[in-house]
Simulated assay, not measured.
Amino acid sequence: MRSSYCENSNFSHGPPRLIVVCDDPKVPAELTPKRVLRGMLARGSGYGIAPPTWTLGKQERRADRPREVKKASRQVQKRLRKKRFCNAESLRLAAKLSRCDRRHRCFSAACPQCARALQRVLVRILAPFLKERVGAELWGTLSIILPPTDPDAEIDFAAERERYQTVLRRAGFTLGVFGLDCTFNEDWRDLNPPKKPFLPHACVHLHGFAPIEDIEAALPLLKKLVLATEAVPRPFHHSAFDAAVKGVAYNFKPSFERRQTIEQFDPRRAKLVRNTRHRPQLTVEQQIRAVRALDQAGLNGRIILLGVHFEIVPTARARTNPQT
Rank of each mutant, 00 (worst) to 15 (best):
R2N: 11
R2W: 05
S3G: 09
N10S: 14
G14H: 07
P15R: 12
P16C: 08
R17S: 12
I19L: 11
I19W: 08
V21R: 15
V21N: 00
D23H: 02
K26Y: 00
K26G: 00
V27I: 14
E30H: 09
T32M: 08
V36A: 09
G44I: 07
S45P: 00
Y47F: 15
G48P: 06
G48R: 07
P51Y: 07
T53G: 10
L56P: 00
K58Q: 07
Q59H: 10
E60T: 02
E60N: 11
A63E: 14
D64N: 04
E68N: 01
S73Y: 00
R74V: 11
V76G: 02
Q77S: 10
Q77P: 00
K78T: 12
R79K: 15
K83P: 01
K83S: 15
N87E: 04
A88Y: 06
R92C: 06
S98V: 02
C100H: 09
C100W: 10
D101W: 12
H104M: 09
H104I: 01
R105Q: 14
R105T: 13
F107I: 02
S108N: 09
A109W: 01
P112H: 10
C114T: 09
C114N: 11
R120P: 02
V121N: 06
L122G: 09
I125L: 14
F129E: 03
E137Y: 05
W139Q: 07
W139Y: 15
W139R: 13
G140W: 10
T141C: 11
I145Y: 01
P148M: 03
T149Y: 02
T149A: 14
T149H: 12
P151F: 11
P151T: 10
A153R: 12
A153L: 05
I155A: 07
I155D: 06
A158W: 05
A159W: 01
A159H: 08
E162K: 15
Y164Q: 05
R169H: 14
R170I: 03
F173W: 10
T174H: 15
G176A: 07
G176E: 06
N185W: 02
D187H: 11
P194N: 05
K196F: 03
P197W: 04
A202Q: 05
F209Q: 07
P211E: 01
D214E: 15
A217E: 14
L219E: 13
L219F: 00
V226K: 07
V226W: 06
L227I: 11
A228V: 05
T229N: 10
E230I: 05
P233S: 04
F236G: 04
H237Y: 13
A244K: 14
V245C: 12
K246L: 07
A249L: 08
K253S: 11
E257C: 03
R258V: 04
D266Y: 02
A270L: 04
K271V: 01
L272Y: 09
R277W: 11
H278M: 13
T283H: 04
T283S: 15
V284N: 12
V284M: 02
E285D: 11
E285T: 04
Q287N: 14
Q287W: 01
I288Y: 04
V291P: 03
V291C: 05
R292G: 12
D295I: 02
D295F: 03
I304V: 15
I304K: 05
I304F: 05
G307P: 05
I312T: 14
I312W: 01
I312H: 01
V313C: 01
V313G: 00
P314M: 11
T315M: 12
A318S: 13
A318P: 00
T320Y: 10
Q323Y: 11
